[in-house]
Simulated scan of single mutants.
Amino acid sequence: MLKTIKLFLPLVTISVLSACTTAPLSTTVSQQEQRDLALQTAIIQFTKQPNINFSKAFVDLNENHKNDAIVLLRDRNWCGSGGCTLLIFEKQHRKYKLISQSTVTDAPIYALNTYHQGWRDLAVYSRKRGFVRFKYDGQRYPSNPSILNIIQQFDERSATLLIGQ
């Protein structure tokens, strides 16, 4: 009988120990969730508001194979009769850095197939005027679309819609 106990003791010990351990909880966060959280953090840092209404789009604006963020703040604190505030963030590592802020902007917003200073041009709607071309000047995009020339004969089919109505 002692022999039988000696044979089963290691098996019982292993069974008891394995029953006491639990599988680690899954804390995996998807890349999309990480991206959205990083953008949300950048928006809160800029607006100083934890809950704000906005539309967003992700697109590689500077051909570095990282999706930058275009954000149209649609919150009443960031909109007026001429439009809303547009923020453009550059993706840097796991964070978003604000590179441009524009007022009196409205949707729709399109990405064009042309570039200036290594950054993609945007077609932004300016209320009561039409679409204007946002060109990067080496530091930022224009701060006020209402003073830019409108795009004559803008063909939406030749651009990529980022943020719709």
Score class of each variant (00 low, 15 high):
residue 1 M to T: 08
residue 2 L to T: 12
residue 3 K to F: 14
residue 10 P to W: 10
residue 12 V to G: 09
residue 13 T to P: 00
residue 13 T to A: 11
residue 14 I to G: 03
residue 14 I to H: 07
residue 15 S to F: 14
residue 15 S to G: 15
residue 16 V to N: 01
residue 17 L to Q: 08
residue 19 A to P: 04
residue 20 C to I: 12
residue 21 T to Q: 06
residue 21 T to M: 08
residue 23 A to R: 14
residue 24 P to M: 08
residue 25 L to M: 12
residue 26 S to L: 07
residue 28 T to Q: 09
residue 31 Q to L: 15
residue 31 Q to I: 14
residue 32 Q to G: 05
residue 34 Q to S: 09
residue 34 Q to A: 09
residue 34 Q to Y: 08
residue 35 R to C: 01
residue 35 R to D: 09
residue 36 D to A: 14
residue 38 A to W: 01
residue 39 L to C: 02
residue 40 Q to A: 11
residue 40 Q to G: 02
residue 43 I to M: 02
residue 43 I to S: 05
residue 44 I to V: 15
residue 44 I to H: 05
residue 45 Q to P: 00
residue 47 T to P: 03
residue 47 T to L: 03
residue 48 K to E: 01
residue 48 K to I: 02
residue 48 K to R: 12
residue 49 Q to S: 08
residue 51 N to E: 15
residue 52 I to R: 07
residue 52 I to L: 10
residue 56 K to Q: 15
residue 58 F to Q: 07
residue 61 L to D: 04
residue 63 E to P: 00
residue 65 H to M: 10
residue 65 H to N: 15
residue 66 K to P: 00
residue 66 K to R: 11
residue 66 K to M: 09
residue 70 I to S: 05
residue 76 R to G: 00
residue 76 R to A: 09
residue 78 W to R: 05
residue 78 W to D: 04
residue 79 C to W: 11
residue 81 S to P: 02
residue 82 G to F: 11
residue 82 G to D: 14
residue 82 G to N: 13
residue 85 T to W: 00
residue 88 I to W: 04
residue 89 F to T: 12
residue 94 R to H: 14
residue 94 R to K: 13
residue 94 R to I: 10
residue 94 R to D: 15
residue 95 K to E: 06
residue 97 K to P: 01
residue 101 Q to I: 04
residue 101 Q to H: 00
residue 102 S to H: 01
residue 106 D to T: 06
residue 106 D to Q: 05
residue 107 A to I: 00
residue 108 P to R: 07
residue 108 P to C: 08
residue 110 Y to P: 02
residue 110 Y to I: 06
residue 110 Y to R: 00
residue 111 A to K: 13
residue 112 L to R: 01
residue 113 N to D: 12
residue 114 T to W: 04
residue 114 T to P: 05
residue 114 T to A: 08
residue 115 Y to I: 10
residue 118 G to C: 06
residue 119 W to A: 14
residue 120 R to L: 01
residue 121 D to A: 13
residue 122 L to H: 14
residue 122 L to R: 14
residue 125 Y to I: 13
residue 127 R to Q: 14
residue 129 R to T: 14
residue 130 G to Y: 06
residue 130 G to Q: 10
residue 130 G to C: 09
residue 132 V to H: 02
residue 132 V to R: 05
residue 136 Y to Q: 11
residue 136 Y to V: 09
residue 137 D to T: 02
residue 138 G to Q: 02
residue 139 Q to E: 13
residue 141 Y to H: 03
residue 142 P to S: 03
residue 144 N to L: 10
residue 145 P to M: 02
residue 146 S to W: 05
residue 147 I to Y: 12
residue 148 L to T: 09
residue 148 L to I: 03
residue 149 N to Q: 12
residue 149 N to Y: 07
residue 150 I to H: 00
residue 150 I to D: 00
residue 151 I to Q: 04
residue 151 I to H: 08
residue 152 Q to M: 04
residue 153 Q to S: 13
residue 158 S to W: 02
residue 160 T to I: 07
residue 162 L to C: 07
residue 163 I to M: 08
